[in-house]
């Protein structure tokens, strides 16, 4: 438990207090129905942020084990959302059961006991081979290739990629590893928030209406630059110099953007607007951690190869 961690969490809480206050003011001023709806959605998002910060901050403060358990649960809920929307056939039943109750817990267990080597190949190699092998036993070859790919994608996105965020706790960079996790989450999530805010304020040109009806060029540029600025200012939480922090933030932001984009494309393919209904104003867990799925492995590897002992 470090002083710095407390400062960061207090800083985020202060930002949320300002956001909540702004929300109250906007609520009073909004008169048109469309503006009201936007403000209502904004306030729901702010309330959800409070819950997320308390849960995540609490887990991180309590230590490594609780953080890993929290991410295990997040992965579980995300995988559940993935399979609720993705069609499967009767023949996939055992593979799905194993994904939820064997592969997912084992993967996080390997993380918990610090077996990095096995952790990094367990899903990409062993789940990849074993799950389709088990599925053949059901004897249903219809769309077999596509079905096997869906099983693997579900695990890679919601379990493997996401788990690289808590895996940061394994790294020895000379400073408290929990701060690296906080840094990653702050930059990724602020990038989303800034993109949303800049998009609402200045957004004109739609980036790719076929994939996301709300993402705009102005939102992306403004959001990315703001998040990189914050990431640079927060370099003190990390072993990075300001310049390195700027470059790494840029990678986080770009990866996060594509994470959101790829998961949106999958949603459109599945004809859904949101992944779930858990968080009011945010959709499901997967809607919230979509950017993290892409940003976490990149940030983890950059930190591990260049800054860890």
């Amino acid at each position: 438990m470090t002083q710095q961690l407390i400062y960061v969490l207090a800083g985020i809480a202060a930002l949320l207090v300002i956001a909540s206050a702004t929300g109250v003011v906007l609520e009073r001023r909004a008169s048109e129905p469309r503006a009201r709806e936007t403000v209502h959605n904004l306030n729901a998002r702010i309330r959800a942020w409070w819950v997320m910060i308390v849960v995540l901050g609490g887990a991180i403060v309590l230590g490594e084990t609780t953080t890993i358990i929290l991410f295990t649960l997040l992965s579980f809920m995300a995988l559940r959302e993935f399979w609720t929307l993705t069609p499967s056939r009767r023949g996939d039943h055992v593979a799905l059961f194993l994904s939820f109750f064997v592969v997912l817990p084992l993967h996080y267990l390997l993380l918990g006991v610090g077996r990095y080597g096995l952790f990094s190949i367990f899903i990409p190699v062993y789940a990849f081979l074993i799950l389709p092998a088990v599925t053949t036993l059901a004897g249903d070859t219809s769309e077999f290739l596509a079905r096997s790919a869906k099983v693997q994608w579900g695990l890679m996105l919601t379990v493997y990629a996401v788990s690289h965020a808590p895996a940061l706790l394994l790294l020895e960079t000379g400073g408290p590893a929990a701060l690296l996790l906080v840094y990653l989450i702050v930059v990724v999530q602020l990038s989303d928030v800034f993109q949303y805010v800049w998009g609402k304020l200045l957004g004109r040109r739609l980036l790719a209406p076929g994939i996301s009806p709300s993402k705009t060029v102005e939102g992306l540029v403004g959001g990315a630059l703001s998040a990189i600025l914050v990431g640079t200012l927060l370099h003190g939480l990390t072993p990075f110099t300001p310049l390195q922090a700027a470059a790494i933030s840029a990678v986080i932001v770009v990866a996060g953007f594509f994470g959101g984009f790829v998961l949106s494309a999958i949603k459109r393919d599945l004809k859904a607007k949101d992944w779930g209904y858990l968080i009011e104003g945010h959709g499901g867990v997967l809607d919230r951690i979509d950017s993290l799925t892409f940003a976490a492995p990149l940030f983890f590897h950059m930190t591990r190869y260049w800054f860890a002992a």
Partner: peptide
């Protein structure tokens, strides 16, 4: 929707989709 995927006839394994 989805219930047949949670506990299909002939299986005792529950897949926790919603």
């Amino acid at each position: 929707d989805n219930l047949q995927r949670i506990l299909p006839k002939g299986s005792f394994l529950i897949v926790p989709i919603t």
